[in-house]
Write a protein that binds this DNA or RNA. Sequence first.
DNA 1: GTAAATTATGTATAATTTGTGAAATTTATC
DNA 2: GATAAATTTCACAAATTATACATAATTTAC
Lengths: 225, 225
Amino acid sequence: MDRLKILVVDDESRMRKLVKDFLVKNNYDVVEAEDGSVALDIFFEQKDIALVILDVMMPKVDGWEVCREIRSYSKVPIIMLTAKADERDELQGFQLGVDEYISKPFSPKILVARVEAILRRTGQVSADDVLEAGGIQLNKAAHIVLIDGRQIDLSYKEFELLTYFMENKGLALSREKILNSVWNYDYFGDARTIDTHVKKLRSKMGEKGNLIKTIWGMGYKFEVE
Amino acid sequence: MDRLKILVVDDESRMRKLVKDFLVKNNYDVVEAEDGSVALDIFFEQKDIALVILDVMMPKVDGWEVCREIRSYSKVPIIMLTAKADERDELQGFQLGVDEYISKPFSPKILVARVEAILRRTGQVSADDVLEAGGIQLNKAAHIVLIDGRQIDLSYKEFELLTYFMENKGLALSREKILNSVWNYDYFGDARTIDTHVKKLRSKMGEKGNLIKTIWGMGYKFEVE
DNA sequence: GTAAATTATGTATAATTTGTGAAATTTATC
DNA sequence: GATAAATTTCACAAATTATACATAATTTAC
């Protein structure tokens, strides 16, 4: 799956950088624009913008105007950033087709959550296939694993194993159970095979490797502290 | 499935009642606390709180402090209620492990939606087999033992032994019986071995260790006064 | 109160289980 | 069919736990 492209429009470069950093960490492509007219140029030039994040207060062409312009040609999802709750002319925004508001200051977590919610709503990304726990994002459909936003390469079995662990977060899993689920039920191999895969998984997961706990005498457990 | 228990902490009784009413309507059990210290008492006394809804602004112990205390022992989901967007010190909350924010005023509908989303996300909707007695919570699926909400580490045999005791609460168990159940039926070792395991179990259980009673000349019994 | 029986406890040793690296085998790809 | 990659097996080291045993403490019976 290709990365989705998000256009971030704000006159403050600090704010743009902040937003960009968090989106990039969460596997989005980000294009920046420092004012409304640049934003419009970029938007109509690049045809694959999946979402626009728009600051309301900007010199020259303000957020509302940019929104209106974009809307006259496209129904791309738009998130408005507002400095204060008062600034939210929500009625106007509603008429203009704003999808979501986020008040400054906002937490990166919330920003990303809203972005994902909207993309899911507008059908640009299927969330059902994404597992998230302890800073690990696993996309089943795309067969991609991100650790703190950084992609790691896993083999097929390693991916299957991690998926099984994450789908059974917090549960103690015996080797037998793991074999029956991740391997075929008629697999007659050595249960110690799992150890080897766990070892490789842990090492590829770096620090996060210790989220796979050993339950001595029993098996393994994926657990987020 | 049993109803899930939610702890609502707010100094305003009006607000507590409002929240409670809507949660009860949606089939949750609700426990109320009027301030932070009461909340902590309740949380550690009742071991089956599935989620905590916490007002930030409270006299004496504030929401952040309660959050921090709970987090040092438990990873129960926490929702923070904030009066204004400004009050949301989201970075702090993020570090403390807050799962969600809801700004006052909020619609009951949103509150319930967030609660359900979190419970779904944290996989609490499925009630796994948990044994509870005398402040001891034993989760077989997760291979976890909580004593007054605090997790203790048990070895495989210790866990098995405690499980057997709790499954036979109030029954006198001879060493022979214990050997046949917890150990393999063909185990020919010393029956006194059990003593050693009971000793370690008791010590790891702290005060609760005395729930395992010695029946002189006979064996042991797990009993809650 | 005392002796006998039973249990509690600390410790050393045995046994088991897991981690790890490397080799062998299987599978996929060109 | 050769090559590379992934998977599995294996052997041994390291870690952890289980057990036995000696001795202390406690309980019971008389």
